[in-house]
Amino acid sequence: MILVREDLCDFCGVCVSVCPPDCIELREAEIRIDHEACTECKLCVYVCPVETLEYVETSHERAV
């Protein structure tokens, strides 16, 4: 699953712009990933300018 290090996130929206299932919710200072809808394609991880997002292997049960 994709982990967000909220202390690094600057809420810029770059991850949102590439996310295929549109499963990232971004507000002024709040970001949430819908792990049910996430396909773990990792595109968001590649484009985040400041290495906020991290992919960790977990069983789906643990992710939710």
């Binding site: 770059v14 712009s17 590439v18 295929p20 549109d22 484009v47």
Partner: peptide
């Protein structure tokens, strides 16, 4: 949705 080649980070 943007392709990776079409976004500058």
């Amino acid at each position: 949705q943007l392709k990776l080649k079409d976004i500058e980070t």
